[in-house]
Design a protein around this nucleic acid. Sequence first.
DNA 1: CCGCATCCTAAGAGATACTG
DNA 2: CAGTATCTCTTAGGATGCGG
Lengths: 130, 130
Amino acid sequence: MADRDWRCEDPEQQLVWASATSEALRVLEGKWKIVIIIQLFAAKSPLRFSELERRIEGVNQKMLIQQLRQLEKDGIVTRMVYPQVPPKVEYTLTEMGIALGPSVEALIDWAFMRREALGSQSETGTDKSG
Amino acid sequence: MADRDWRCEDPEQQLVWASATSEALRVLEGKWKIVIIIQLFAAKSPLRFSELERRIEGVNQKMLIQQLRQLEKDGIVTRMVYPQVPPKVEYTLTEMGIALGPSVEALIDWAFMRREALGSQSETGTDKSG
DNA sequence: CCGCATCCTAAGAGATACTG
DNA sequence: CAGTATCTCTTAGGATGCGG
């Protein structure tokens, strides 16, 4: 697997990895995608649209739908529609979405390490002097 | 660490993780950042600006500088200027950058799994019928 | 060799109102 | 409940030319 020798010095291999990873990362880009994924992991069960909306503070319908659609298109989540009144739609992680586990885990870990490292520094981004 | 119980069911904890990870991910966003980071990992030694430019196909100076500056601001890379003629500038990973190793590794791994899973599907993005 | 300034286009993000 | 449509603002991305 790639995790054995990804630091090897073969320049061509670097290019392959870099471009593949760059593409993969684009799947996670978007202000709410990682949040959605973490919520789905945490739930361990399908989540309705309104459930996601409730759990994710600050998101609006358009953004949530847009991000969900992109995740669906990229094969990360599955959208299940129950043809009933009132409508019911549930979202789950696909196998490929579940396979993101280690990445998400590593990212969470790094995020917290970073937060601790930044420590007392302002996180409000008020430093615009630079 | 977070990797022990990040799937716990505490809703508040989810929000904390999700937002922290979302912020962390923003550090990696940008078309060339992960590419730069992988190149720096692979090099195992400082890289000059021109070296990076040479190794990263398709990037132009403005983008490379822009992304490097953001990575520097976010504490991922260090910029070392040698006051000489002609100018020489070298970039290295900071400790926080090196700490990204597991995340990058997991991402590379997932990227390749995904590529295999997609298999024979077109990767050129020519399918615009949807 | 390294980097900045300018100008431009495309995409991301969000508020609001409307539909089945 | 779930989703669409429209409009607006900001940011990312990129081509080109100039300067220390």
